[in-house]
Design a protein around this nucleic acid. Sequence first.
DNA 1: TGCGATATGTAATAACATAACAAATCGCGC
DNA 2: GCGCGATTTGTTATGTTATTACATATCGCA
Lengths: 144, 144
Amino acid sequence: MAHSHDDHAGHDHVWAADLTRNQALVLGALAHADTPLSAYQLLDQLRAEGLRAPLQVYRALEKLVERGLAHRLESLNAFVACADEHCHRTGLIAFAICSTCGKVDEFADTIIEDRLGAWSEGQGFTVERTTMEIRGTCGSCAAS
Amino acid sequence: MAHSHDDHAGHDHVWAADLTRNQALVLGALAHADTPLSAYQLLDQLRAEGLRAPLQVYRALEKLVERGLAHRLESLNAFVACADEHCHRTGLIAFAICSTCGKVDEFADTIIEDRLGAWSEGQGFTVERTTMEIRGTCGSCAAS
DNA sequence: TGCGATATGTAATAACATAACAAATCGCGC
DNA sequence: GCGCGATTTGTTATGTTATTACATATCGCA
Ligand SMILES: [Zn+2]
Ligand SMILES: [Zn+2]
Ligand SMILES: [Zn+2]
Ligand SMILES: [Zn+2]
């Protein structure tokens, strides 16, 4: 790792401390974007910082997603920074994606999670991860 | 229609009547498969029937998905035949995908649908379509 | 210092999907 | 049957997303 251990004071971006350079670059780009970015869009943005190849981006994304700092949107083949800095949500996360402006809203619903859990238990299905993505039009786009 | 594969005793596949040749070929291949197939896997299987280019497959898939006769699994970039002839494409459909054997189970849950509807209404979000895919291990794979 | 685990760099290639254009076919009123 | 617009098909080329393979560098620790 490129960074040594800091104490976690809590006010700053707590994730910054133990990210590698490439991971920090990718997460920074995602955090500044207001819509999801594909791996190649990230690469284009980060060429100025020295990134040259898709794999550098994909490898950083893999770690970030693993740690819950970013999420992959399967229906877009794109990625977003986690909307909640402190979340590290292990539970089911749903995404509402506006087809007009591209903005993504991230939320959790324990009842949905329970329903899926009940179905899985009934079927003997062991859940590893769940993708839930709603496509549609957000409130502010509908208003215009 | 060249195939007589019926897994539901008692009635034929009502859809066959007004499908084009390419659409029937693609849906037939999906219906015979026991796991999802990618567009290129379909193309490979259907070269013997005269299909030559990806676009022929993608165009057929587009129509089939539109009509609810097939579904796209976003997390796999692959497609399945609809498991239920009476499945209405307007309702929310969830898929449980076994990472071990690849089999897919399709189900609907109106409570989940209601929860998403409630969230959307609260946010002013207009839902167009929803993707819900559970990855994990199915009962029979867990048993072995 | 040496060693295993992790991270990086680079090139090549695989896998997935669409654009653009021409030709054939279908549905249907006439 | 004929005309004609809508749909489907065929074909080539290209664009986009993701991984394999291999070499190099760095980190954590004994
Ligand atoms: Zn999150
Ligand atoms: Zn919007
Ligand atoms: Zn279905
Ligand atoms: Zn299984």
